[in-house]
Computed example of a mutant assay.
Amino acid sequence: MHLNEEKVGLLIVDIQGTLARRVSDSEAMICKTAKLIQCCKLLDIHVVVLEQNPDGLGGTVHEIETHVASDPHFKKFAFNGVAGIDQFSSEILAYIGKKGLSRWLVVGIEAHVCVYQTVVGLLENDFAVEVIHDCISSRESSNALLAIDNMRERGAQISSFEMTVFELLQSSRHPKFREVLALIK
């Protein structure tokens, strides 16, 4: 199934506080995620930010927050952001359901905990999911690899930052091609 920019959203999971700096390859993950966000904004793709217990863990890191400050932010406490097991995850699920978007790109940390459980929750709620592997991480890279395998087995598509962006563009004749290309380089 091809990505269609009119039916896709970007879900950012918990890229917060000092933990975001302690995951494997954190600088590269944060940098690629920031670029992906900018590309999504150019393509008018809806962005949603989740934050796990922000009072305890801190807010979304500055490099990302600068690009998403005006986008909806949701506080959560359940690892599965769309579990529907508490007021917070129920609000998140209701919100993304109202957007009418059938496919969600998912990025964030930690891959084997909140990203994994949120992806499974999305899939269980009949959303298509594309996990951007170079925009997720865990403290131990082996946990991220295990999460990717398990998410794929559950039905998520696994992609990369560039692969996703070029699939969204579909052609060098896309009106935003040059602007997106400038972000990738």
Rank of each mutant, 00 (worst) to 15 (best):
G81C: 08
K76V: 03
G81E: 08
P72Q: 12
N80R: 06
F79E: 15
N53C: 10
L57Y: 07
A83M: 12
H73E: 07
A69H: 08
P54N: 09
G58H: 09
A83D: 08
T60G: 03
K76Y: 04
A69C: 04
P72K: 15
A69P: 06
A78R: 07
F88L: 02
V61H: 01
G81M: 03
H62K: 10
N53L: 11
Q52H: 08
K76R: 03
I64V: 12
D86E: 09
E63R: 00
N80M: 11
P72H: 09
N53T: 08
H62E: 10
A69W: 03
N53P: 10
E63T: 05
N53G: 13
G84N: 04
F74W: 10
P72G: 06
P72N: 09
V82Y: 06
K75H: 13
I85F: 14
G58F: 00
N80P: 07
A78F: 04
G58Y: 08
G59E: 04
P54I: 03
N53K: 12
D55Y: 14
T66W: 00
A83Q: 10
F88G: 08
H73T: 05
V61E: 01
A78E: 15
S70E: 14
N80H: 09
A83S: 14
F74I: 09
S70C: 06
Q52C: 05
G56Y: 11
G56H: 06
T60A: 01
D71H: 10
Q52D: 08
F88D: 13
H73G: 05
T66G: 04
D86Q: 09
I85P: 10
I85K: 13
H67G: 02
A69E: 06
G59F: 01
D86G: 04
Q87C: 13
L57W: 06
S70N: 11
P72Y: 07
F79I: 07
F79S: 11
E63C: 07
K76A: 02
G81N: 04
V61I: 00
D86P: 13
H73D: 02
N53F: 12
I64D: 12
D86R: 05
P54A: 07
I64E: 15
H73R: 12
D86S: 05
S70H: 11
G84D: 00
F79A: 09
E65D: 09
L57R: 04
F77N: 13
D55M: 06
I64S: 11
Q87S: 14
K75G: 14
K76M: 05
H73A: 12
A78S: 10
P72D: 07
T66K: 13
I85C: 15
E63N: 08
F74A: 04
A83N: 08
V61S: 00
H73W: 11
F79P: 11
D55G: 09
Q52M: 01
H67M: 03
E63G: 01
T60E: 02
P54D: 06
F88S: 07
P72I: 12
D55I: 06
G59Y: 04
V82N: 01
G58E: 06
V82F: 06
V82W: 07
K75L: 15
K76C: 03
I85D: 15
N80D: 14
G59C: 07
Q52S: 05
D86M: 02
K75I: 14
V82Q: 02
V82G: 01
I85E: 15
